[in-house]
Write a protein that binds this DNA or RNA. Structure first.
Lengths: 142, 142
DNA sequence: CAATCAACCACTTTGTCCCACTGGTTAAAA
DNA sequence: TTTTAACCAGTGGGACAAAGTGGTTGATTG
């Protein structure tokens, strides 16, 4: 179960630390790609294969699916940690997520998400009331 | 059954005592995360797993669920007591709950709540009038 | 041949663990 | 009844290991 929030900086070679808590669950090789809400998604090989096999069941005549797959797969990059636990982020992904220096890496169940710091805070603040509402319903279920 | 109110200070390493009365029920490892009304929730492993297993049934293509998961899990931290019965609070959680030094730890049935002292008193004072009103309808609903 | 990229290396910082101290409460003994 | 000893909860700080940062070198490619 991936969870938690970590703050790290991209260096001038576009390298980003993957927090050590996440490294075991990600494994040696993993996949990074465009995610929803303009952040990046990071999956380990198993999770990635699960998603792909689900996507493959959708006929390519479905326009939404076609668009989604194009976005999702064209950005996908296989990456590997260097000796210090870092990955290098490619330019297309940097642009997509508006990364420049300060990043936030969050664990969300089966994936990591990589956010530009400002974007994340903006997202967070604009959803914080929503959080209470949804939570209310959820916690009442007990 | 967790209950009671305890006052403790964060030290300059962001460590906070978990009152000894609570330690048995929490166990060795437990989870701390963002709660409602800007305090922190602390769950033992069982309670946490219950919540998570419900969340995992919601598909990630559902936007509200995606947002909620992100908010909920990004704050979650697994923690363990040190030899002196303390935990370390991470920065994102400190910020969320506006903790600085004086904290209040309250037991609320199946969880602990960690409050900034001022926030708690503010909450307490602004709801003390409502206490009877809220009570009024409460039992009828179930 | 130049420029870019990836691997390597070394330094710095952070976090974790451990130990020692304080104060208060309880129990025991004079 | 008073004093002393022992214990437990809580507090603070220091040491060491791990994590994070930045730079340099060597290889590879255009």
């Amino acid at each position: 179960m991936l969870m938690g929030e970590f703050h790290h900086n991209l260096d001038d070679k576009n390298r980003l630390i993957i927090p050590s808590k996440f490294r075991n669950e990600l494994g040696k090789k993993f996949i990074i790609t465009r995610g929803l809400e303009k952040c990046l998604f990071v999956y380990n090989e198993n999770e990635w294969n699960n998603i792909i096999s689900k996507l493959q069941q959708i006929p390519f005549t479905n326009k939404d699916a076609r668009i989604f797959m194009r976005m999702f797969l064209s950005g996908a990059t296989e990456c590997e940690l260097d000796n210090n636990g870092r990955i290098t982020i490619t330019n297309p992904l940097m642009n997509y997520a508006s990364l420049n220096k300060e990043c936030i890496i969050v664990g969300v169940n089966d994936r990591l998400e990589i956010w530009d710091k400002d974007k994340f805070e903006e997202f967070f603040n604009s959803n914080i009331e929503n959080f209470s509402d949804v939570a209310e319903g959820l916690f009442n279920a007990y």
